[in-house]
Design a protein around this nucleic acid. Structure first.
Length: 586
RNA sequence: GCCCUUGUAGCUCAAUUGGAUAGAGCAUCGGCCUUCGAAGCCGACGGUUGGAGGUUCAAGUCCUCCCAAGGGCACCA
């Protein structure tokens, strides 16, 4: 309908250009919007105001001429000019009821479009270091990324969901060392646990698995392990130096093969946990991309080689630097350290290059807000490869700050005190958690009060929407119990009986869904879907309270049932998109 | 010090991406269950959109400055 109206206005503009009212070089993007206020009709067009200046005419006068030049259309019931020069268009009942028909006919496909048909989008999200369970901050990234991916898919984009596994580097070493120390403890060795090691219970669990599989093969006495190490942080030394020394000791004592076995056991265990956790949260991936694979395949060296060939690298202080400041970054960045090892950033350059070389036309990265300083340098790298940086859209998600009542909860993976996503799911349920997360724009700071979420879970908006769905299901049960008939075909023939204001508003809300999907997908804003659903549910509840659906008059009953079943279908589709269930009874 | 994000009703957040009279939920107050589920509905109260300028037909939205909060400024990942 929107497109139809757009073309009507476009024709009117063309005609005014032809008769000289508008200058021959008139260029305008015609915006057709849903009117906010129903007193402004169904759709509003601002073209007259936009063109007023170049036409050198008053907006309202221009609006009148545009309206006069508009072709007749069967779907248009009336056109008025209002305010500073808005053209407000009412569509006919017949045109509006088309939405009900579409929703019922298309079912789960209602709302889909081919808006993104030409795009292949890679969306990378969560990508938490596999050094422990996901916490509630990751949960927000998971809910946002997962929902955005669904939203884009619904709008017809070809989407690849990806998790970047940081399986190389120091954090993995610290995890492996932590596991090994716990493993020695299980064998009766008394070891003061390092300040900077991972202390969560899951480390003990992995150690137990290691003990089960390796028996005593990885044993070394504590005094050998701890011999002549520097002082730890709490002993007056430096905790970073201490843990690094301990990592080296672990590698030396175990040897490369055994060490690799510990690393991979730790990695696999944690990744499996993350995968299960996300799956239970309704978030799945198409691809788990290993950082280590980039170094092993030579992709990192290759990327650096290409930067070198293009003259973007230089040597200084024994390290290799990328001249990122030439591409908008605030300073240059090291890509190869003095000790010869490549940096995380170097891997990331290769990784993003790889994403585009796999044929993606756009990439979305969902990062925690604490990584924002990193955006400029990745964009710089893309520019260095002559990639338009806008092709990489970095979405920063603010951390959720957890409260229990008024008490702020500390969050640190290292200390093991964090609240995990799993715990959150168990407390408030996956449905409520996902909805709660995605209801807010990601760049908003989020105060998440667990006590509130738990104690008031009945007031959570997700129940409001699910209830609307369940209520409609319940009407069908009543229909059978009362022995009444329902004929959808007859209902379709009598949709014009639906003239109550509650009904026309619900019809209009249903018709807005496909438009909403396109708008939300283009803006990459999943929260719009959540807000829309709450509004739709509100229309359903209001209608339910104002009118009886199961009336004696057959034609009206059939028509009303068609309407509410169409609404139910939209609620289902929307909730499914959000990863939230649509129960038939609550 | 520099950079990023944010600042909207008592609280938590929206606002069709520059549109018309800034809207919801919670909280408070008052109504609606003998009728398809009251996890609901109807109504009331609540605002100088952090502050000051500017841009234009139109600013919560864009620009400049100031204030405040959170975060970031590694040869860590």
């Amino acid at each position: 309908m929107k497109e139809q109206l757009r073309s009507l206005i476009a024709t009117a503009v063309d005609r005014l250009v032809a008769d000289g009212t508008l200058p021959p070089d008139t260029r305008v993007e015609i915006q057709v919007e849903r009117a906010r206020d129903k007193s402004h009709g169904d759709y509003a067009v601002n073209t007259a105001m936009v063109l007023a200046k170049q036409a050198r005419r008053k907006p309202r006068e221009l609006a009148e001429r545009l309206v006069a030049a508009m072709p007749q259309d069967a779907g248009v019931a009336g056109v008025t000019i209002a305010g500073p020069g808005f053209i407000n268009i009412d569509i006919t009942f017949e045109a509006a009821y088309g939405a009900v028909r579409d929703a019922l006919e298309q079912g789960p496909r209602y709302g889909r479009s081919n808006q993104g048909a030409d795009e292949r989008i890679n969306i990378e999200f969560v990508s938490a270091n596999p050094t422990g369970p996901l916490h509630v901050g990751h949960g927000r990234g998971a809910a946002f990324g997962g929902t955005l991916a669904s939203l884009l898919t619904t709008a017809g984009y070809d989407v690849n969901r990806e998790y970047y596994v940081n399986d190389a580097g120091r954090q993995m070493d610290i995890l492996a060392t932590s596991v090994w120390l716990r493993h020695l403890e299980l064998q009766g060795e008394a070891i003061r646990f390092p300040d900077n090691a991972y202390r969560g219970d899951y480390v003990r669990d992995i150690a137990q698995r290691l003990r089960n599989s390796a028996q005593d093969r990885f044993f070394h006495p504590a005094k050998v392990v701890l011999a002549s190490l520097p002082l730890d942080g709490s002993e007056g030394g430096d905790k970073e130096d201490y843990i690094d020394a301990l990592v080296s000791r672990t590698k030396d004592l175990l040897g490369p093969e055994a060490y690799a076995a510990v690393v991979s056991l730790a990695l696999e265990t944690v990744l499996e946990d993350i995968r299960d956790d996300l799956a239970a949260f309704g978030v799945t991936y198409d691809q788990w991309f290993s950082e280590r694979s980039l170094t092993e395949s030579g992709a990192v060296d290759d990327a650096l080689q290409r930067l070198h060939a293009a003259g973007h690298l230089y040597e200084a202080d024994g390290a290799t630097w990328f001249r990122s400041s030439a591409f908008g970054d605030e300073k240059d960045r090291v890509v190869r350290r003095e000790n010869g090892a490549v940096t995380y950033f170097a891997s990331d350059i290769a990784y993003h290059l790889n994403k585009f070389e796999r044929g993606h036309t756009a990439c979305i990265d969902v990062w925690g807000a604490d990584h924002h300083g990193y955006v400029a340098r990745v964009h710089a790298a893309l520019k260095a490869f002559d990639r338009p940086p806008e092709q990489l859209d970095v979405r920063l998600v603010q951390f959720a700050i957890l409260y229990r009542g008024s008490e702020r909860m500390p969050m640190s993976t290292r200390s093991g005190q964090f609240v995990t996503l799993r715990e959150l799911r168990e407390e408030v349920g996956a449905d409520a958690a996902r909805f709660f997360y995605v209801l807010r724009k990601p760049e908003q700071h989020l105060d998440f009060d667990l006590q509130l979420a738990k104690s008031q879970s009945n007031d959570n908006p997700v129940y409001y929407i699910q209830y609307a769905h369940a209520r409609i299901c319940s009407v069908l049960v009543q229909l059978r119990e009362k022995g009444l008939t329902y004929d959808p075909v007859n209902g379709d023939r009598h949709l014009t009986l639906l003239t109550e204001s509650h009904e026309t508003e619900l019809v209009s809300a249903i018709g807005r869904y496909p438009e909403l999907i396109e708008i939300a997908a283009a803006a990459r804003e999943p929260h719009q879907v959540a807000h829309y659903l709450r509004e739709l549910a509100s229309h359903v509840h209001t209608y339910y309270n104002a009118h009886q659906f199961l009336v004696d008059e057959r034609n009206l009953r059939d028509a009303r049932l068609n309407l509410v079943l169409a609404a139910r279908q939209v609620i289902r589709n929307g909730l499914h998109l959000l990863g939230v269930s649509a129960p038939e009874a609550m």
